[in-house]
Design a protein around this nucleic acid. Structure first.
Lengths: 185, 185
DNA sequence: TTTTAAACTTGACAGTGATAAGATTAAGAG
DNA sequence: CTCTTAATCTTATCACTGTCAAGTTTAAAA
């Protein structure tokens, strides 16, 4: 019958994890610091030992997701053998990530909290695209615009796919592939 | 010295307008029904005569913006003479609308409230694109995917442009034009 | 002119973010 | 091993929020 110890031991991490699970299930607007505290079996003020305020918690939770997202992309990049397919594969993975976690898309991009310069997925994406363009013989001057166009499309499709009714979920990969391939870079 | 009448007379409309102005200035998270009531010089419970609850207010406010947005797009369509340029011009107008009102983008798409099937800008966009594709000789089977690709790009760029640091604001039109033209439909 | 229903106010409730003051205890210093 | 200290957590409280019930005012219909 282990009595609950006064000190939690791993509260910060549990707050982040349970918080994200809660957001995934009920959406951001339902999340409150007090509910979160209760879910973790701790008093309502306890979270404030680890986060300055709710905003700070949300920012750190976003970082947490962003890291997962970055890892997902990195794994994808590592798994692609045929380098010619990397743009398509990366784009697909990007879109699917948010299709699978629609609330994360809102959570990340809804509040203008994400700054481009400190958004690792963008850096990663930009690097891969740059390399691919180089290999494809795209002229240097055209690269930035083409890259932004591509990113817009991938990012936009991620957002739209979070809207119900846009994508056909039956054969998602094919669907996304078809859309991304519908324009020529 | 006109005494404030007991009945406001035009409260619902003023709530929507002042509410949107408030959102534009301070962001959605700062908005509360009570502040809104105060801004309109009315008691804290008065808004509930016109809106079921806050969610209902937000939905109606979104409809309100969406109408403005739709009108903007319609004016744009009407103003384009060279029909070959209509895709580009419409895309530009789409992006610029949200560049000019970044908070609106978040407001509209942050909460998954917008449903594709009842989102007039999409219908409008789809019609125009369909017609343009027909004129361009795009095969019927390819149209849906191309249209989604295009819309993703335009919509995505709108979202990204709300992130500071993505677009060069000095010559915005040229910038957007360059990006949208960087891929071939 | 009377009636009625819509538009508004007042006053209340539970839930929220946040802080101050105090209790507990893990971990390092001597 | 003891003492100290600082991190962690609780309790109590504040101002503010969404929302509703009950009552007030008034425009407009009967």
């Amino acid at each position: 019958m282990s009595e609950k110890p006064y000190h939690h031991g791993n509260l910060k991490m549990e707050l982040l994890e349970k918080g994200l699970a809660f957001v995934d299930e009920h959406g951001v607007e339902e999340l409150s610091m007090r509910k979160l505290a209760e879910v973790c079996g701790v008093s309502s003020a306890a979270p404030y030992a680890h986060f300055q305020n709710k905003e700070d918690f949300l920012i750190q939770a976003q970082r947490f997701i962003t890291e997962q997202f970055t890892e997902t992309l990195q794994e994808c990049i590592a798994a692609v053998k045929d380098k010619k397919k990397i743009l398509l594969e990366l784009g697909k993975r990007y879109v699917i990530f948010f299709y699978e976690n629609p609330s994360y898309y809102h959570f990340l991009f809804s509040h203008g909290r994400v700054e481009l310069t400190e958004y690792p997925p963008y850096q990663l994406f930009a690097e891969v695209v740059e390399e691919a363009f180089s290999e494809m013989g795209v002229k240097k001057k055209a690269r930035r615009k083409k890259m932004l166009a591509l990113w817009s499309m991938v990012h936009g499709l991620s957002g739209l796919s979070a809207m119900k009714g846009v994508l056909d979920g039956d054969d998602l990969e094919k669907e996304i592939e078809g859309i991304l391939n519908a324009v020529e870079i």
